[in-house]
Write a protein that binds this DNA or RNA. Structure first.
Length: 555
RNA sequence: GCGUCCGUAGCUCAGCUGGAUAGAGCGCCGGACUACGAAUCCGUAGGUCAGAGGUUCAAAUCCUCUCGGACGCGCCA
C-alpha cells in the first residue's frame, strides 16, 4: 500500500474515532481527498477534508482540523501535522520513513515501484493494428510507443497484460495490394500493364514485387488465372509486410503477445457465428436485402449494416467477431487504442460489446490524437497509397529509439502532434531524455569512482542524519512517490505523467549532486550518500523501462 | 449541420477525481569547473490560462455559448 492510501486511511480512522467520541457528527463513509500541495511549505500531502466537513459538522474548519490532528498523532510515517488558515491539514513525512524507503528500494531493485494487487485483472491491450499494406509510419510509431508504455504501466500496477496486434489481412485493401504487386511484377518483366488507379504507388511495392519474384517464381509461373494470381501475390505481400512490421517493432522494443489475423475469423467461421448470435438475440433486422445491427439501442447515432446485399460481411461484423473472440478469451478488461479517424466508430463497437454481454465499463477505447507530418515546416498529407510518408524505420535510424519513444510518450494522448523529421533530428540533442539518462550514467560513474578509490558501499552502514538536507530530502520524497505515480498513470492511462516525474527526479538528483560531495573520507557519509544515489538510479532505470527507454551506464 | 480533440510564457507542452502565489523543457540574457562526468547547476525576463456568462466558500480544471484550429460523420478498412 502506498503512502497516499495509508494517509487516507489514517484520516478516515481519525474521523471515525472523533465521531465515536462525540467530537462532531458526520456521514458514515466520507471520501477523503489527499493531494500533493504545490508548495513544499504546505507539506508533502494535504487534505481539504476539514474544509469539506465544516458545513455538516457545524464547526469551523480549523476546529475540525485540530480535532482530527489529535487523533492522527502517533504515526511514524509523519514527522509533523499542521492545521492552517482556511482549514487545510498539511502532513510532513518523517526523515526516518524516507530513509527506510531507501533500503526498501535497494532491496527490491527492479521490482521497486511495482504494485501488487489482490485480484489482478487480465487485460488485453490492442494497439497499432495498421493495415499490412506497407511499412509502419510515424503515426504507428506514436501508437506503438504509447500502447506499449500503457501496457507496461498497467503491468507494473499489478495487472496481467497481453499486447495484441490485429492484422487486417482480408478485404478490398489487400486485393488492391495484390493488384499493385502484380502490376509491378509485370513491369519488372518489361510487360506493359496498367497500374490500378487506386493502387499502392509507393516505391516499396516494387521491392515487394522483386522479393516475391525471387522467392516464388515457380508458384507464380504455375498460376494461370489472374484472379488467383492476385490473391496469391496479395497473401505473399501481406506476409512480407507483416514480417517487416514485426522487425521494425522489435527494433522499437515493442513485442506483441499475439498477432491476430482477420482472415482466420472469416475462414474459421467466427464471422458467421457472430452473425447468428446477433440475429438470434434479435439485434439484427432486414432492410432492402441487407442485415442491419440495431446499434442505436446502445447509443449509436444510426444503425449499421453488417451484411451487404450480396451477402458479404462488412468490416464491422468482422470486428465484432474479433472482439467477441477477445471476450471469449475471458479478459476482465479490454482496451483498444485507435487513431482519431476512428472515433466515430467507438459507439457502434462499444454497443456491440454490450450486445455480446460485456459490461460497458470493462471496454475502453483510447484515442491517440493525430500526428501531422511536416517537411521543412510544410504539412504533408500522409498516404500509403500515394507512397509519401515517413517510415518508422527511418525514424529509428535518424533519431534513435530512446529519443523517439520518449518524444511520443512525453505528450498526452490528447495532444495533436506536429512532427518534422528533419527538425526532430536537428533537435534530438536537446531532447530531455538525455537529461534523464545522464543522471543515471552520472550515478554509475560515481560507483566506478568509488571502486577506484577503494570505497566500499554498504547500505546497512548508512546513517539517516547524513541525508538530513533539503536536496536529499526532496529526492527521497520523490522516490517514495514512485509507486503512486505508477498507480496514477495506470488508472488514468496517461504514460506522459511518468516523463514529467522522471524529469523531476533527474533534476533533483543533479541539484543534490551539485550541492553535496558524495565521496569523502567519512565512511558513514559515503554509505549514506551512495545509498541515496543507488536508490535514485534504480528508480530512474525502472521508470525509463516503463516507457521503453534505456538507462545507460556511460554516455 | 452533428460529433471528437485542441486553444496555458517567444516555441513545445505539463497542471492529478475543482483547492493555497499558474509550472517545466527549449530559446533569450547574466553567472558557476585547481574536487566524485559542465550532456550539469544557479539567477533574470516572459502569462487577460482564446473570449463571455454560469455553478461553487473556491474554476486553467465543471456547465452553456461564441471565436479559432485539426479530424471524423461509408454497405472503406
Amino acid at each position: 500500500m502506498n503512502e497516499k492510501r495509508i494517509l487516507q486511511q489514517l484520516i478516515i480512522d481519525a474521523y471515525h474515532s472523533a465521531v465515536k467520541d462525540g467530537r462532531f457528527s458526520g456521514a458514515d463513509d466520507p471520501y477523503v481527498k489527499v493531494e500533493y500541495p504545490k508548495d513544499q511549505k504546505f507539506g508533502d500531502y494535504a487534505t481539504p477534508f476539514a474544509l469539506e466537513l465544516a458545513r455538516s459538522a457545524r464547526k469551523s474548519p480549523l476546529e475540525i482540523g485540530g480535532i482530527l490532528k489529535e487523533y492522527m498523532d502517533g504515526t511514524d510515517i509523519l514527522g509533523r501535522i499542521d492545521v492552517v488558515k482556511p482549514g487545510y491539514i498539511n502532513m510532513f513525512l518523517s526523515l526516518d520513513h524516507l530513509w527506510k524507503n531507501l533500503h526498501q528500494i535497494v532491496q527490491e531493485r527492479d521490482a521497486y515501484g511495482r504494485n501488487v494487487k489482490e485480484n489482478p485483472r487480465r487485460i488485453n491491450v490492442e494497439f497499432i493494428s495498421a493495415n499490412p499494406t506497407g511499412p509502419l509510419n510515424i503515426v504507428s510509431a506514436r501508437a506503438a510507443a504509447i500502447g506499449d508504455s500503457i501496457a507496461n504501466i498497467l503491468e507494473a500496477n499489478g495487472d496481467t497484460v497481453e499486447r495484441e496486434f490485429y492484422v487486417n489481412d482480408f478485404g478490398n485493401q489487400v486485393t488492391l495490394l495484390g493488384k499493385s504487386v502484380l502490376a509491378r511484377c509485370r513491369e519488372l518483366d518489361g510487360i506493359d500493364y496498367p497500374f490500378p488507379e487506386e493502387g499502392y504507388h509507393g516505391e516499396y511495392v516494387i521491392e515487394i514485387a522483386r522479393h516475391i519474384k525471387e522467392t516464388c517464381s515457380d508458384e507464380i509461373a504455375a498460376i494461370d488465372d489472374e484472379e488467383m494470381l492476385i490473391s496469391f501475390l496479395a497473401e505473399k505481400a501481406v506476409q512480407y509486410n507483416v514480417s517487416g512490421q514485426r522487425e521494425d517493432l522489435d527494433g522499437f522494443r515493442v513485442h506483441f503477445t499475439r498477432w491476430f489475423n482477420e482472415r482466420a475469423l472469416h475462414e474459421g467461421g467466427d464471422v458467421d457465428a457472430t452473425y447468428r448470435y446477433l440475429d438470434e438475440k434479435g439485434y439484427l433486422y432486414d432492410q432492402e436485402g441487407k442485415k442491419v445491427f440495431r446499434s442505436t439501442d446502445f447509443g449509436d447515432d444510426k444503425d449499421r449494416v453488417v451484411v451487404r446485399e450480396d451477402g458479404r460481411p462488412t468490416y464491422l461484423l468482422a470486428d465484432i467477431a474479433y472482439h467477441r473472440n477477445k471476450i471469449e478469451r475471458g479478459y476482465d478488461y479490454i482496451i483498444d487504442i485507435w487513431g482519431p479517424d476512428h472515433h466515430g466508430y467507438i459507439a457502434r463497437l462499444a454497443g456491440a460489446m454490450v450486445a455480446l454481454g460485456m459490461k460497458k465499463e470493462d471496454f475502453r477505447v483510447l484515442i491517440a490524437q493525430q500526428v501531422n507530418l511536416l517537411m521543412e515546416g510544410q504539412t504533408v498529407k500522409m498516404s500509403k497509397r500515394l507512397g509519401n510518408f515517413s517510415t518508422m524505420r527511418e525514424l529509428i535510424e535518424e533519431i534513435g529509439v530512446d529519443v523517439s519513444r520518449y518524444f511520443f510518450v512525453m505528450r498526452s494522448l490528447d495532444s495533436h502532434l506536429d512532427f518534422d523529421l528533419a527538425l526532430a533530428k536537428k533537435e534530438s540533442s536537446e531532447n530531455p531524455v538525455f537529461y534523464l539518462q545522464y543522471a543515471h550514467a552520472r550515478i554509475c560513474s560515481l560507483f566506478r569512482e568509488a571502486e577506484k578509490r577503494g570505497i566500499a558501499y554498504d547500505p546497512g552502514g548508512s546513517v539517516r542524519e547524513y541525508l538530513d538536507n533539503p536536496e536529499a530530502v526532496i529526492l527521497m520524497k520523490l522516490m517514495l512517490k514512485f509507486p503512486e505515480e505508477i498507480e496514477d498513470a495506470a488508472e488514468a492511462f496517461e504514460p506522459h505523467r511518468l516523463t514529467t516525474y522522471l524529469l523531476r527526479l533527474a533534476q533533483s538528483f543533479h541539484r543534490f549532486y551539485t550541492e553535496h560531495r558524495v565521496l569523502s573520507d567519512n565512511v558513514d557519509s559515503n554509505n549514506s550518500c551512495l545509498l541515496l544515489a543507488d536508490a535514485t538510479r534504480i528508480v530512474m532505470k525502472n521508470g525509463l523501462a516503463l516507457i521503453g527507454v534505456m538507462a545507460p551506464e556511460r554516455m
